[in-house]
């Protein structure tokens, strides 16, 4: 591939999704998105920046400008290790790490997270395990992760597995809370609250549209 072919495609303003920045900014503390001065401190601090397709500074700029597709399809959001190095240095106190997490959530909701990419697979498997048992068991998660992404990797890690077994660090016993019902009630209630909030927002939007016409 020639270098220019990997450059991002030019975008006309009409192609951008201008609702996207507003949606992202609706997260707690999200208005800070508009306070970014594009100084690049975040990218300079990020230990993973060199592996990212867009640096953290670019992700902020692109989110704000409405490059929804590019942002949600980026590897950057999955490479962020949540180390908060950027967030504590940002001169505008922008919670960049939390934006990355928010973008991950949106990518999953929109179904555009990379399906066989181990980072998002792990996130989803972890979520399922905790939803079911209230606790997670690392060894089981790792096995599922390999099974779903690259089964051959299990062989690669077999020696490590053996060593862990020998030192009593590998157990497949599934941990669980006693009061699973309580976990279920709590998580359901969050879903219900979200549904209500969604309907409220819809109603507000409709009202606004009606007022305009």
């Amino acid at each position: 591939m020639k270098e220019w072919q990997s450059w991002p495609r030019f975008r006309y303003e009409a192609e951008l999704d201008l609702r996207f920045p507003e949606e992202v900014a609706s997260m707690p503390g999200g208005r800070a998105l508009f306070a970014c001065i594009q100084c690049g401190t975040c990218s300079g601090t990020c230990p993973l920046a060199m592996y990212m397709d867009y640096s953290p500074r670019k992700i902020i700029a692109m989110t704000r400008a409405g490059f929804k597709d590019e942002v949600l399809h980026s590897f950057t959001i999955w490479l962020c290790a949540s180390c908060y190095a950027c967030a504590v240095e940002c001169p505008r106190k922008i919670k960049i790490t939390d934006f990355m997490a928010e973008l991950k959530q949106r990518a999953i909701q929109e179904g555009v997270d990379p399906k066989r990419f181990p980072v998002s697979v792990l996130a989803r498997e972890f979520f399922k395990a905790v939803r079911k048992r209230g606790r997670s068991t690392e060894s089981r998660l790792v096995l599922r992760l390999y099974a779903k992404t690259n089964p051959l990797k299990i062989l690669d890690q077999a020696l490590l597995g053996l060593k862990l077994l020998r030192t009593g660090r590998f157990s497949l016993h599934a941990e669980s809370v006693k009061n699973r019902q309580q976990i279920d009630q709590i998580l359901r209630a969050v879903d219900a609250a979200k549904a209500t909030a969604f309907v409220d927002k819809l109603a507000r939007d409709v009202r606004r549209e009606v007022a305009h016409t």
Partner: peptide, 15 residues
């Protein structure tokens, strides 16, 4: 119960 960790946060922060 599991605190939710960063991986859970990636899927649903409120949960």
């Amino acid at each position: 119960n599991c605190c939710g960790a960063t991986a859970y946060m990636a899927v649903d922060e409120m949960k």
